[in-house]
C-alpha cells in the first residue's frame, strides 16, 4: 500500500501533525511518501491508496491550490476509483470551486465539489463539536476553528449533534473521500473512527496507544455530552 502525505512541511496547522503521527505510528509498514510543495505529487505518476492533506495558512492555501489545479482530473478520477482521501481543516476548501481570501483575491479550486469559500479572519468561527458518523456506534468529537465559510451541499461526512451554529451536517464524504473542517487532531481524538478508516485500508490491528486514546476519548465525550458545556 502507498500512502501519500501532501505538503506536510507547510500543511500542519492547528495540530494536524497529530494526524500524520497517527498514520505513521500505525501504517509504518507501508510505503509512506511525503511530498513537499516543490515536488510533483506522487499520485500523478504512481498508484496511491491513501492521500492525506492537513490545515494550512491562507498564503499556503493559495500555493497549494495552484499546485494541485493541474491535477484536478487525476484527483477526480482517483475519487471515482475509490482511492481514500482524508482532507482536514481548510484543506477541504481546495476541492471546491473557489476561495475568496481576506485580501479580496479569489483563487480557483479544483472544482470537484460544489463548495465556494470566503475567508474572513476578523470573524473567525470557533466551536466544540459532537456528531455522528453513519455506521459507527461511537460519536465523533472535535473542534472547529474556521476563518472561512464554505457552502457545502449534500454528501456530508458527519451529522451534527452539538455545534455552536446549530448546523445539521459537517464535511464531505464521497466514495472514499473524507473531507472535514474538524480539528482535534481528528485521528487522535476519535480512535473508533480512525480504526474504521484504517480498516478500509486493510489495517485490522490495534491502534498504537489505543487504550489511552479511548480513555481520553471517553473523558472528552462525557464532557461534550454535558448539557451545560460551553461550546
Amino acid at each position: 500500500m502507498v500512502i501519500e502525505i501532501l505538503y506536510p512541511e507547510v500543511c500542519n496547522l492547528y495540530g494536524d501533525s497529530g494526524n500524520i503521527l497517527v498514520i505513521e505510528k500505525n501504517l509504518s509498514s507501508h510505503n509512506i511518501i511525503k511530498t513537499t510543495l516543490l515536488d510533483e505529487p506522487y499520485f500523478v505518476k504512481h498508484k496511491v491508496d491513501f492521500v492525506y492533506l492537513g490545515s494550512m495558512t491562507p498564503s499556503i492555501e493559495k500555493k497549494v491550490m495552484e499546485k494541485l489545479l493541474p491535477y484536478k482530473d487525476i484527483i477526480k478520477k482517483m475519487i471515482d476509483d475509490g482511492v481514500m482521501f482524508l482532507f482536514t481543516g481548510n484543506a477541504l476548501e481546495i476541492m471546491g470551486k473557489s476561495v475568496t481570501f481576506d485580501d479580496g483575491t479569489t483563487t480557483l479550486g479544483l472544482g470537484i465539489f460544489d463548495i465556494t469559500s470566503k475567508v474572513d479572519e476578523n470573524n473567525r468561527y470557533h466551536s466544540l463539536f459532537l456528531g455522528t458518523y453513519d455506521g459507527l456506534d461511537k460519536d465523533i468529537v472535535g473542534y472547529k476553528c474556521q476563518s472561512s465559510v464554505s457552502s457545502i451541499g449534500n454528501d456530508s461526512l458527519f451529522k451534527v449533534t452539538k455545534e455552536l451554529n446549530n448546523a445539521s451536517c459537517e464535511g464531505i464524504h464521497v466514495n472514499n473521500f473524507y473531507g472535514t473542517n474538524l480539528l482535534g487532531p481528528i485521528l487522535v481524538l476519535n480512535p473508533f473512527f480512525t480504526k474504521q478508516l484504517f480498516a478500509k485500508l486493510g489495517y485490522d490491528g490495534k491502534l498504537f496507544a489505543e487504550d489511552e486514546m479511548i480513555d481520553a476519548y471517553n473523558k472528552r465525550y462525557n464532557e461534550l455530552s454535558n448539557e451545560n458545556i460551553k461550546l
Binding site: 500542519n12 492547528y14 495540530g15 494536524d16 501533525s17 497529530g18 503521527l21 466544540l128 473542534y143 476553528c145 480539528l183 482535534g184 487532531p185 487522535v188 481524538l189 472528552r220 464532557e223 461534550l224 451545560n228 458545556i229 460551553k230 461550546l231
Partner: peptide
Amino acid sequence: RDSTETISWYYD
C-alpha cells in the same frame, strides 16, 4: 472551568 479545552496545540 466550563468547557473542554482544545488540545490541537499539543501536536504543534
